[in-house]
């Protein structure tokens, strides 16, 4: 479990990093390395060039305002998790990040890295999809904004180009009067979930849920219609059935597809009720 040979550059500025990426067709960005380094060690990935952006200090930020939370490429999960202002502006961040792996991994892993790694079993891509946020990508050609709906194109595949660095993820602020929830069942604490659901409910206005580990890419579903009359048994069941038409829960060594479908129903109900209740408590 030792990586194949690769070149390593450690740029001191974003421009240097972008030039390095532009110089090689087979380059990879190294930030927290929590996914990339194991892939390298198992020789499942063997890029010719690694561009280590950890020296680019200005990318390590978490900024919140009324619009939402901006997370820089070098902000560690821990930084985002611990940021009270971010938790106030978009509570889903803290609720989801608590479930991301373990403290030691969160201390190193980056939230932006997790998003663009585009693992549909991970919490943060599902949060970006649910909140309809976006990622800002930079290359030597300039910057572009990739909406969540266009970012996740396949299993572990994002629309980020090989010469681009995802410099920022933007999570829109939670609208007033809304409640949120993240529910998941994982085999062990901190594992990738067998099924996960994130929900935003704004009573009387709308409701959305997004899913992880039961689909190839993060799937967000508008269940406003189903929730119009509140989270009754029938309403949450209908919401789950609607979601299931868009999901494809896999069978693997940890769980059957049947069980995951069952969890979609159970966790959709839990998440919608919990978000609904929170919205009402906030409203008081």
């Amino acid at each position: 479990m030792k990586p194949a040979p690769f070149e390593l550059v450690r740029p001191r500025s974003l421009d240097e990093a972008l030039e390095a990426l532009a110089s090689s067709p087979d380059a990879k960005v190294l930030a927290g390395g929590q996914s990339l380094v194991p892939l390298l060690s198992m020789r499942l990935a063997s890029p010719a060039l690694l561009v280590d952006i950890n020296g680019i200090g200005p990318l390590a930020y978490v900024r919140s305002d009324d619009d939402g939370v901006r997370v820089g490429a070098l902000a560690r999960h821990t930084d985002v998790l611990g940021d009270d202002e971010a938790a106030r502006v978009q509570p889903l961040l803290r609720k989801a990040l608590r479930l991301v792996a373990h403290a030691t991994i969160r201390n190193r892993g980056t939230t932006v890295g997790s998003v663009v790694h585009a693992d549909a079993s991970a919490e943060m891509p599902a949060v970006l999809a649910l909140t309809e946020g976006h990622v800002t990508a930079a290359s030597v050609d300039g910057r572009r904004r990739i909406p969540a709906g266009e970012l996740f194109v396949g299993p572990m595949e994002s629309s980020l180009r090989p010469d681009e660095v995802a410099v920022e993820a933007f999570f829109p602020a939670l609208p007033a009067g809304a409640g949120t929830a993240v529910e998941e069942v994982a085999r062990r604490h901190g594992d990738y979930a067998l099924c996960g659901v994130a929900a935003v409910v704004r009573p009387g206005e709308g409701a959305r849920v997004s899913y992880f580990s039961v689909c190839d890419v993060p799937v967000a579903v508008d269940v406003s219609e189903q929730l119009a009359g509140g989270p009754t048994d029938a309403a949450v069941a209908d919401a789950a059935e609607l979601a299931l038409t868009r999901l494809d829960p896999p069978a693997d060594i940890h769980a059957s597809a049947d069980y995951r479908r069952h969890l979609v129903r159970v966790l959709t109900a839990r998440a919608l009720r919990s978000a609904w209740d929170e919205a009402h408590e906030e409203g008081r």
Partner: peptide, 11 residues
């Protein structure tokens, strides 16, 4: 026994 298997047994 995993939760998935217990679920199957219940069914």
């Amino acid at each position: 026994i995993s939760p998935s298997e217990l679920y199957d047994l219940r069914r």
